[in-house]
Simulated scan of single mutants.
Amino acid sequence: MAKTSSWTAADLPDLTGRTAVVTGASSGLGITTTAALARAGARVVLAVRNIDRGRTAAASITGARGPLEVRELDVADLSSICRFAETWQGDLDLLINNAGVMALPESATADGFETQFATNHLGPFALTNLLLPHITDRVVTLSSNAHRIPASTRINFDNPNLTGEYNPNRAYSQSKLAVLLFTLELQSRLTAVGSPVRALAAHPGWSQTNLTSGVTSPVRRGIINAINAVIGQDSTAGALPTLYAAVEDLPGGSYVGPDGSGERTGGPTLVGRSEAASDPESAHRLWALSEKMTGIGFPQRLRTAAGS
């Protein structure tokens, strides 16, 4: 049986010979996740926007038993995603879609998408589908408890960029809801074709990271950081749900988060999701919308459980 609240990075199995890609790996939860996997013996590719920062992050990791490699990837830019995927060779055991942004002022990416929806959902959607022919084990994508806030949060299918009705928090909640619906539909498609690959999601609870750096209001950022200092957990604890989802024998479609009150802190365990995040019809509809927006869809050929 999988462990729950007592589980730590020390419980990671030997990952020697396995390869992982971690997006947004130069800071916060990304570098913490990368370090834990490398110390367990995995070869880890740090997929980062800034190569120099990525190299600095890799050099700061101590005790790594597996090799570290830095590659350029901007998950908010479809051309960067395509370049990364086109140059990938060989098997990829684990893809961790960690990169994310939170509560940004309204802005658009080079592809014309609202930045939070692009970074937190469309980018991972495109990257995952392009890399799926190489993936052998699982995909873990980071969501957030914010997918529940407000309780009325739904995907705005008619206006996913929230043009004319943008609110930073609403956009963030929509993007994290999209992650859970993406995971739900991805697992459904993998199961349908007999693939052994599993799709899972995780959230770090209230974790002390640099995610608030995109919040432009100094007052609001200060309030959030003060709350973090009082009730948040550090990035070592915040990365545990991701690591747990990455290695434990969990069903596809699982969602992992902290087991403490309000899922803010604590050890990793299976957690629930909102009703909106559990709706297969919405998941299917979001997939179709994401394909239309990115021009990227589920690959035609995947390895199956029989190895073909």
Rank of each mutant, 00 (worst) to 15 (best):
P150R: 11
W88A: 12
N167A: 13
Q174E: 14
L127M: 03
I81R: 08
N161S: 14
D158A: 15
Q187H: 13
S175G: 08
F182P: 00
T119Q: 11
D111V: 01
R138L: 06
T119P: 09
T119R: 06
S175I: 09
T115S: 15
P160K: 03
A64H: 07
A126Q: 04
A118V: 03
D77R: 08
D93M: 02
I135D: 09
V75S: 12
T62F: 00
A58D: 08
D158C: 02
Y172N: 13
I51H: 02
A58T: 02
T62V: 13
N161P: 05
T115H: 06
A76F: 00
V139D: 02
E114P: 03
I135T: 06
A64D: 07
L186M: 04
H134Q: 12
A118D: 05
A57M: 09
N167S: 15
V139M: 01
N167V: 06
E185S: 09
S144A: 11
T109P: 00
H121A: 08
G123L: 05
N156L: 11
R49S: 02
D52L: 12
T163H: 09
V140P: 05
A103P: 00
A171N: 07
F117N: 07
G63N: 03
A151R: 13
N156D: 15
P160A: 11
E185G: 07
L122R: 11
N156E: 15
L186R: 02
P133G: 15
H121I: 03
S60G: 15
A151G: 14
D77Y: 02
V70W: 00
V139K: 01
T62S: 14
V70H: 04
E72Q: 13
L130D: 11
R138E: 08
E185P: 05
Q174T: 03
L130P: 04
L95M: 06
L177K: 04
Q174M: 15
F84M: 10
S152F: 00
V179N: 15
S60D: 13
E69Q: 14
H147P: 00
A108C: 05
D137L: 05
S175T: 01
T128A: 10
P105K: 04
Y166P: 14
R53I: 02
T183F: 04
V140A: 04
T141G: 06
M102A: 14
R83T: 15
I96A: 07
E72M: 06
I81N: 12
A99I: 02
C82M: 04
T115M: 11
P168C: 11
F157C: 09
L92I: 08
T183N: 15
S80E: 11
V70M: 04
H134K: 09
C82G: 05
N156M: 08
A118E: 08
H147N: 02
D137H: 13
S60R: 12
D93L: 04
G164R: 02
D93I: 10
R71I: 08
F157Y: 09
D111R: 01
A110D: 10
Q116H: 10
L127Q: 05
F84C: 12
L92S: 11
W88N: 12
S152Y: 00
V179D: 15
H121V: 03
L95I: 10
